[in-house]
Design a protein around this nucleic acid. Sequence first.
DNA 1: GCCTGTGAAGCTATTCACAGCT
DNA 2: AGCTGTGAATAGCTTCACAGGC
Lengths: 212, 212
Amino acid sequence: MAEPVPQRTVGRISLYRRLLSRFREDNASHVFSHQLARAAGVTPAQVRRDLMSIGYSGSPARGYDLEGLAAGIAQFLDSPVPEPAALIGVGNLGRAILAYFEGRRPNLAIVAAFDRDKSKTGRAIHGCRCYPVGQLARVMRQRGIGIAVLAVPADAGQTVADRLVKAGVRGILNFAPVHLRVPAGVYVEDVDITTSLEKVAFFARRSAPARA
Amino acid sequence: MAEPVPQRTVGRISLYRRLLSRFREDNASHVFSHQLARAAGVTPAQVRRDLMSIGYSGSPARGYDLEGLAAGIAQFLDSPVPEPAALIGVGNLGRAILAYFEGRRPNLAIVAAFDRDKSKTGRAIHGCRCYPVGQLARVMRQRGIGIAVLAVPADAGQTVADRLVKAGVRGILNFAPVHLRVPAGVYVEDVDITTSLEKVAFFARRSAPARA
DNA sequence: GCCTGTGAAGCTATTCACAGCT
DNA sequence: AGCTGTGAATAGCTTCACAGGC
């Protein structure tokens, strides 16, 4: 941990981990960098550099040991203690996100949901209890929640972000199409679906026409 | 259009456009680069360079004309003709995406949905007609669809991508947590929610503890 | 004075290319 | 022969800093 690991590398490490299961299914015990690279859509050198930067080593003869690598990634990426997360905004997108993460990684799970609409609160949705936003700070502190997934409309984004910061949030996964202004020390990762679709449309147009 | 505009710039241009409406509401007729920069969370120099790279100029005295800039961005980003898109995978996430884009940009709309589950096909969901995947190629060609949003499980991702390519797709917005192997000329933009959440957890942990 | 447009500098991330190992 | 680990080179992106204009 001498040098800070670049953000992109962290993202790819998470990807590599998911790919490992595929090699396990083939009853392989080791993978080479070029195999992982092919599966991830990056260059072999990139894979080697990424694994180097998290301090994991392979053997020139056999490549990377699957189990050892999985353990190495877990040690690098995962918290040793559970990291409960909250969802704010139980609309269409919020519910889809709840369903998406339901029962995935026990150590990194959405354990509470919040909405301002009273008709959504008081019950459980996809196995997750739903509270009114007024109880945000109380529930977050009580359950030790430091991570939030924000799936509210754009105009509510900053207001909710401010409340999250006051409640001690340390990281936000932001689906609201606004730039959030947060103090240093709070990490924000934006997922901007509209922009992503516009990028696809733009670059699709530039590419060579499929056929005559 | 002498030099190719970088991918990141295209993303930010899309963001800037959405921010413009906020300034319009304040009855402003012009914006300075530092205002846009602040709203977008980037540096003023970045804004100027981005606008330069799409060939739009402001005036040193007044900044950028709101209407002119909006028109300039539209000319750069948008297709002059409608660009119909398809959604493949009408699960929780797929339905949320349909709702999200319903009635947004008339020129860039999801006009057809596909699923392999017969119980979902034959009806309209969020105003979008839903077909069995078997009809993918037929409907896509008939309606001139060149853009696809992929919201299927990981194990179906590559198979569906292959079918899309055969049906003449030019760009894919991929929510499936797999790397898609597509021929050159097909643009793929990945949205990997699991990786994003793991990044948030990772960097949240590194940041300074909120308080004592 | 404060802005834009932009060449040049600076950074960060990726890829090259090869020594060393088996 | 073919792999990993890694310094060095490259490419790509961002920021600096200032000339030019109102």
